[in-house]
């Protein structure tokens, strides 16, 4: 695979406020990349720099090995699906999708062919002459995607496109977007703050916080091997514990030494440890590696969320078996369920 887009030390400040603090990121051809982070972390700013709507304060952006910082948006082979779709309200569905082709003076014959093909791709056949203002959120979304894709860009940027849809529709669109990406075979760069959305769709996730990249990896990497406390906390629920790495494969926390699978730390280095709630199991008192008392239980549909209070902290446990409040229980986990991470400098 070829590197299509390269961010090199991209910095952006708005009136002295640093929004991006030196982003280095490579994006390959045909990749589904998600920029994931809380609101205000700079992910949308990064997307807008790539789209050409704002310029970085420092650093370079390469597209196909060419520096593009000074190239205006209308000359970039990149199209965007905007947060609120930004459809043109005075045009019907067909004219919206045909807009880019007509700007390029494509003959009406070809316009018709291409628009029809796009309407089919996004499942909107027969909607050609509808006013876009009368469509539902999901349909507007599809028009926005078709309007961008009809120009056959090399990259499609999507800025939280599913934010306005309800949960069920959002799940449908997630799968559909993934399907469309496979079908057209181009790079999708997707911005979201929804970790579940990121895990479902992406080939690669870039976790961003406060203008800095926290971790880049596949969804499984990011979930199973979070690099720091922020990533562990942001991606799913976690129990995050302060501990000390005694030696390779040996970690100490809550007054007990545990065997683990991590290595490569300094001896006696202070570390953060994460144990996912679904990796913890409630067992009879004498069989647990730790013990505590059940202080709350919540039914969540598929599982119960049980909080167990040990002498040192509260653990969140996801399990399918309920335990009544007040029972003394043991907590069990395997050595590979302990994920050891470097301490973050600033957290």
């Amino acid at each position: 695979m070829r590197k299509l887009i390269q961010f090199k030390n991209v910095v952006k400040d708005f009136d002295g406020q640093l929004v991006l603090k030196g982003i280095n990121l490579d994006i390959m051809e045909n990749e589904f990349v998600t920029l994931l982070g809380p609101s205000g972390c700079g992910k949308t700013t990064l997307l807008r720099i790539l789209g050409g709507f704002i310029e970085q304060s420092e650093g370079q952006v390469f597209f196909d090995d060419i520096e593009i910082s000074k190239v205006p948006p209308y000359k970039r082979e990149i199209n965007t699906v905007f947060q609120r779709y930004a459809l043109f309200p005075h045009m019907d569905v067909f004219d919206n999708i045909a807009f880019g082709l007509r700007i390029k003076k494509t003959s009406e014959n070809i316009v018709k062919q291409k628009v029809t093909k796009m309407l089919k791709l996004v499942n909107l056949e027969g909607y050609e002459n509808r006013a876009v203002t009368l469509l539902s959120g999901g349909q507007q979304q599809r028009v926005a995607i078709a309007r961008a894709l009809v120009n056959e860009p090399m990259v499609l940027l999507l800025d939280e496109p599913l934010g306005a849809l309800d949960l069920k529709l959002r799940k449908e669109m997630q799968l559909e977007l993934k399907k469309i990406q496979k079908e057209v075979g181009i790079t999708f760069i997707y911005v979201t703050h929804d970790q579940e959305e990121a895990l479902t769709m992406s080939d690669k996730i870039v976790v961003i916080n406060e203008g800095e990249i926290q971790q880049i990896g596949t969804p499984t990497d990011i979930y199973n091997e979070p690099e720091n406390r922020f990533v562990a906390d942001f991606i799913g629920e976690s129990n995050i514990i302060d501990g000390i790495m005694i030696d390779d494969y040996r970690v100490f926390f809550d007054g007990i030494e545990f065997e683990c699978v991590d290595y490569g730390f300094e001896d006696n280095e202070e570390v953060d440890i994460v144990i996912r709630p679904e990796d913890l199991d409630i067992v009879p008192l004498e069989m647990g590696k730790l013990s505590g008392k059940v202080v709350s239980t919540l039914f969540k549909g598929v599982h119960f969320e049980i909080v167990v209070e040990t002498p040192n902290r509260k653990f969140i446990v996801h399990t399918t078996d309920n335990s009544p409040i007040g029972t003394q229980v043991g907590l069990h986990f395997f050595k590979e369920d302990i994920h050891v991470m470097w301490k973050m400098g600033t957290y």
């Binding site: 209308y74 965007t80 609120r84």
Partner: peptide, 25 residues
Amino acid sequence: DPNLAEAAMDLGATPWQALIKVLVP
């Protein structure tokens, strides 16, 4: 929608075309 002009430019319209074809209508 604050992104209307940007959407037009994103689709290949020059700033002038974005003004005449999208904003003014």
